[in-house]
Design a protein around this nucleic acid. Structure first.
Lengths: 66, 66
DNA sequence: ACTTTTTGTAAATTATACTTGACATTAATG
DNA sequence: CATTAATGTCAAGTATAATTTACAAAAAGT
């Protein structure tokens, strides 16, 4: 699954640490999600989308094989 | 986290087993997600939303404490 | 009433999300 | 160049998602 959290952060000028604090997770969680190391829960996806005022689909995208 | 999968299924007239097969998970996974027993991954949420031609936010909703 | 389909649930196991702490690397600033 | 901020990554542990098998209960159909 792809995501564009880095771009969304750049638009809002937010660091990984700041985003992490906003949605109450560790900075590493944001870092690993952003780098595609693992797929977040729907709760986190909804919270992240909420922070950026976009839909979940605007941030997370399924790949071909998924 | 709340969800309205049951309603979405009713609209499309799809059983839990059928939905499960469509997105390649077990029927129990659909059942437990639908009954709110656990929160699905974002991959599953995206797939479910795709089946019903709606956004993730149209199916899954954060609660107050989340 | 009987049969079949659908749904609910439980226990055990496996896979993976998430945390914490720590350190290395890179980017930005003085 | 030196310092600080930001990001990348690793390892170990905890929490929880997801699977399988199996059975019970409820709903729907004949």
């Amino acid at each position: 699954m792809k995501n564009n959290i880095k771009v969304q952060r750049a638009i809002k000028n937010i660091t990984q640490a700041e985003l992490a604090e906003m949605i109450q997770v560790s900075r590493q969680t944001i870092n690993t999600i952003e780098s595609g190391k693992y797929v977040p829960s729907t709760v986190l996806a909804l919270k992240i989308a909420k922070v950026f005022n976009v839909k979940v689909e605007d941030i997370f995208e399924l790949e071909e094989n998924e």
